[in-house]
Design a protein around this nucleic acid. Sequence first.
DNA 1: GCTGCAAATGAGAATGATTTTCTTATAGCT
DNA 2: AGCTATAAGAAAATCATTCTCATTTGCAGC
Lengths: 151, 151
Amino acid sequence: MTETDRRIAVFESQLKGAGLRMTQQRRLILRVLAEADDHPDAKGIFTRAFAHDPTLSLSTVYRTMKVLESQGAIERHAFEDGISRYEHADQEHHDHLIDVDSGEVIEFSSDAIEELQRRIAAELGYELVRHRLELYGRKKPPARRSGKKKS
Amino acid sequence: MTETDRRIAVFESQLKGAGLRMTQQRRLILRVLAEADDHPDAKGIFTRAFAHDPTLSLSTVYRTMKVLESQGAIERHAFEDGISRYEHADQEHHDHLIDVDSGEVIEFSSDAIEELQRRIAAELGYELVRHRLELYGRKKPPARRSGKKKS
DNA sequence: GCTGCAAATGAGAATGATTTTCTTATAGCT
DNA sequence: AGCTATAAGAAAATCATTCTCATTTGCAGC
């Protein structure tokens, strides 16, 4: 709760600085986001928030996501289905591995891959601004001690 | 033209094998795709093909793209704007670098990055099925001989 | 070359995520 | 408390993509 409140306070001062208001709805959505440990989409956020405030509308969720994103408070990702998913941004940069069977999203980060990307862009005469990296994988069975290969 | 015709012939036999038909429309769309050296979206393909056959409909383009994709004849990519873009698939695997200023798409490939991705997935207990890598960059001015750093 | 029919097409309606419009409510300053 | 610009709610609009359905067309067999 403390962590959530800290995030909310930080965001509130960011808003203030931009001449924007801290509303009940924004507070609520921010709380939902801070408490989420997955990557919910707009409807998912709406559903969770709606449980606490049944007057909330989906438009407000979308609008709020935009504000939050423009303030750098959240990150938006669109995986293969094209639907935007959100996560709060106060963590180090990371990429995503998506389990193709379950849809589960696993976060990872690799300095080596970041560096490699920068070098590739440079070789093409570009300065890397940002990137999108998604790995789609299937869970491997744990290694056997002396396994026979199975077809 | 020869290359285009070869692609069309190959695709026709693929279709036949799947019990599907080679229609005028599919031939036309395939030709448009084979002649494209960029990454057009459905509307772009439609526009180019429509010039050759004004009875063509956009639905047919979408339907055909699905068939082509399921036969492995084309690849579909959705960059940041979420719109599907297509390119013919008879080339080695590659990733894309998008010029954030011009929108230009540059293709590149790197065995090192492929390998690194595979390793990262493996470390997380996954077998890499596929991946999506897009670099967004800005053109760097050509290096100066003894340049002073500019802000 | 004709027939039959399953597959494909064209035109437009339907879908689904997201954005916009417009009217009403409210945050935050005085 | 009162003012006013920003925000919210509800519903309509948008836009890419898919679907429906009536009509057309490949193509296999005669």
